[in-house]
Amino acid sequence: METATAPIIELKQLKKKYGDHVAVGGLNLTIRQGEIFGLLGPNGAGKTTTILMLLGLTEPTSGSARVCGLDPTRQPLQIKRRVGYMPDDVGFYEDRTALDNLIFTAQLNQIPRQEAYRLAEQLLERVGLGEVAGKKVGAFSRGMRQRLGIADVLIKRPNVIILDEPTLGIDPEGVRELLQLIHDLSRREGLTVLLSSHHLHQVQQICDRVGLFVRGELIAFGDVPSLAKQLDQEGLITVELEASGFSDAALSELSTLEDVVEVRGSVQQGDTETTTVTLLGKRDLTTEAAGIVIQSGAQLQSIRRKQYGLDEIYHRYFEGGGLA
């Protein structure tokens, strides 16, 4: 299935230097049609620079990029016709109405005025700004601006949309709605979405694949489970147990289990309350641990094999593991 769709963005050894500072160093990346790809990294990791190179807004020092089969440095105009880009902290002409702003963008894309008007109204309705279409953008809140930004990106009917930090500075509910909107759009119209963020949970929610970007290098990429697998390279699997009536004997028995590396958690004396124990093993110890706890007469309340979220992955890589 993955090989069936052609790559729409292809980066090969893409490099950008500012003087001695390497902003992006030898980036290889392929993004397929219809995919939602999350570019994840801390501030200053080179995400925006990469995006600018994709659009031909800045020239790569070396390497090549292909977007929709076109070269951004040679054919920026054709690319800009097919790619919608929403910069982080997108700005609009504040003393113009939302509708005016959209129509202006549409006309720059050679859409006739009447069609532009119709499209703009449709899109405003779609992003939930239908009622404020005639209001000046100056009075808009941050979340409304971002949604207007999405409409602005869509009005040229792009194949690819690139969103730079789309969720920055919006309240949690707004973020949820915005991400839902992006997800719906991508699924319904087959849009390829590239979004950059430093906010893990949000990216995790909607992205098909994620690339971790640190100091100009893509240190890992793939879908969230496969990233977790990459993280598990040390072979440690975490199991979390919650039980009441735990005894010291059970705890020591747990630690004598084969392949256990570490047992965290202690038992309070005469305890009938819930205790949490974390078990780190070289293999999946869930069943055996459960067996021991139950045999010891404790009440097992929950047991789960811990899945790595992006947070841990992110943290782990940023701690230096990825750069060592």
Partner: peptide, 14 residues
């Protein structure tokens, strides 16, 4: 400063 320049230049104009 208003952030409109990068939006404008990402449209197909020279």
């Amino acid at each position: 400063n208003k952030g409109t320049l990068s939006r404008l230049l990402s449209q197909p104009i020279y």
